[in-house]
Amino acid sequence: MTGVELSAADWALACLLGAAVGLDGVSWPQAMWSRPIVAGTLGGLLFGAPAAGCLVGVWLEIVLSRHPPFGGARHPETGPAAFMAGAAYAAAGDGAPIGIVAAVAVGWAIGWTGAHSVTLLRRVTPSLVSRPEGFRGGAAALARRHRLAIALDALRAGLLVAALFVPSVLFVRLLSTQPSGAAGAAWWPVVAGLGLAGAAGVAARGLGARGRHWPALAAGCVLGTLLVQVFA
């Protein structure tokens, strides 16, 4: 019905890869293969279109950078979010601007769903390892429980992908296959472009909160616009 072929093996592989990118975000090893540019590319690769996945990943780099994890603040979980959004756009986006918008919206929503799942998991973790006076069971027991907590995080990320992978693909597919003459279709590139530029401004402020750097941001935008003229 949707024109997207997804085998059980693809789905299982997606769950495994999703667990790996989810694990990297906080638990191990924080080498940043959970960043959207990597996870999105990986998601696209699953459907043989790494460039489509990478493009969504780059958009999500900007949109999700609004919430840096300063001081342990709650932030969207980028890995599974970008992985699923990249895969969904690669599988079903058809290169349409509305497809990118849909995939980015999916990534944003899954990012926050992932953040909530992390919060839930952290309600379980204290019972494994946390005592105000310190863990009394010795180093070996602590190591076992620490590894169990990491395994639970991988399981959480895998389950997140298991539950949301197919709905993400379907959502992007349904939006992307709307006829180009449908009401408002011509406005999507404008909405997407201005929304992205606005998101870049919000992200830039979030990352440079200690100083006022808006002239640098404006200079970057102007430079980018000139580059577009050169490369067009």
Binding site: G193, L223, G224
Partner: peptide, 14 residues
């Protein structure tokens, strides 16, 4: 980073 984010956004929009 502010400059790079600006460049990236303008390139994507373009």
């Amino acid at each position: 980073n502010q400059v790079l984010i600006g460049v990236l956004a303008a390139l994507l929009v373009g």
